[in-house]
């Protein structure tokens, strides 16, 4: 204790400043970090449970041509067009028998690519063919 009184005024100021920063900033930040880390692990577990694919793949950034190639592996006619506000209009045509394939494809889009499928998917049917138009927004 006596050594504190022997310190120079500058040392005391530095020490006081250190203590203030420790309690007002360092400790709350450290606590927040550990809480967030736990939350991150929980969210990750949640996502892993949601992903029911047989072979889970890592999510990728959206790229229109890469996505077109990917979609064409499921369907013959695919069109990906850029529209304002950083969105893409995707049009897919397929025979009505491939509807179940489409449901699966739609479900897994957001696990394969960092995109949000916007509401208002438009289906059109002509005879035995279905055409689907949807809007994707990458994030």
């Amino acid at each position: 204790m006596s050594s504190i009184f022997k310190m120079s005024i500058v040392t005391k100021i530095f020490l006081l400043f250190s203590i203030v920063i420790l309690f007002l900033w360092v400790i709350p930040t450290t606590t927040s970090y550990y809480k967030n880390r736990n939350r991150y692990n929980q969210e990750k577990e949640k996502l892993e449970k949601l992903d029911t694919r047989e072979v889970p793949k890592d999510i990728k950034h959206f790229h229109s041509e890469v996505f077109t190639t990917y979609a064409k592996s499921f369907f013959d006619e695919v069109s990906v067009v850029s529209i304002p506000n950083n969105k893409y209009r995707v049009t897919i045509s397929f025979p009505i028998e491939s509807l179940s394939k489409f449901y699966s494809f739609l479900q897994n889009i957001s696990l394969d690519y960092k995109v949000i499928v916007e509401d208002n998917i438009i289906f059109r049917q002509k005879d035995k063919n279905i055409s689907v138009e949807m809007r994707l927004k990458p994030y």
Partner: peptide
Amino acid sequence: LLDTEINSYKNSVALS
């Protein structure tokens, strides 16, 4: 990012 991923997946599942 994870939250966005989860929410967009849930949305896709709902639409499907």
